[in-house]
Design a protein around this nucleic acid. Structure first.
Lengths: 104, 104
DNA sequence: ATGATATGCAAGTAGTTACTTGCATGTAAA
DNA sequence: TTTACATGCAAGTAACTACTTGCATATCAT
């Protein structure tokens, strides 16, 4: 059974719009630092470490947007749901405008 | 006299929000293909090549957003205003989430 | 100076987005 | 099965965004 969220690029949401919100970017930061966090963990760490005052439902909706953009995948684990970061969609940005000028 | 638009990163607009609009991304595409276009040129090419129906004023406002994000700089040349692409702000995205996993 | 071309500014509006509130569902321990 | 915990769903609202319209400014040719 395939638990990982997998959506075709056709029905995939806008990666750019997903990045447009600062709270969503902080969620990506949090998952980049510690992958596989639950909604509660994310809420707690966003509040304590980034002064995010949004409610649990707000964070949940942000995660949904990130999932539609292919930046986050989720699967249940007991009564919690674990979220994972996927940076592959961000490659589109590099390929689109930074592809040729790769200065090392 | 310094004609190039130069804003400090403190008062610089949101790069992510600038990328959130599809028309603005097409403007970046156009400038990436042919740098130094005027507003009229951009309007014409967006209309003919990308089916953008927006008015001249709409495109002008999009360019303003891109300028605030540091993605575009402009200077007058006669009675036209020439726009140039700057991809440096996009580096922030790479550095933030793609920095470590640079697979060649 | 006058007209034509290219752009800038500002107010108003329709559509979108983020947020909250209230209730429902699913999972595990007692 | 009851209780607590973790999350999901859906409707309503406030704020924001993109767009248009109308007028103003700037540059150049006649």
């Amino acid at each position: 059974m395939q638990v990982t969220t997998c959506i075709s690029s056709a029905e995939m949401g806008d990666v750019y719009k997903a990045l447009a919100d600062p709270t969503r970017r902080l969620i990506l930061d949090e998952l980049a630092e510690r992958d596989g966090q639950s909604l509660f963990e994310l809420c707690a760490r966003l509040a304590t470490r980034h002064n995010v005052t949004s409610s649990r439902q707000a964070i949940s909706q942000h995660i949904a947007v990130l999932k539609e953009a292919g930046l986050v995948s989720s699967h249940r684990s007991g009564r919690t749901r674990v979220h994972h970061l996927h940076t592959e969609p961000l490659r589109e940005i590099v390929d689109r405008w930074l592809a040729d000028r790769e200065d090392p």
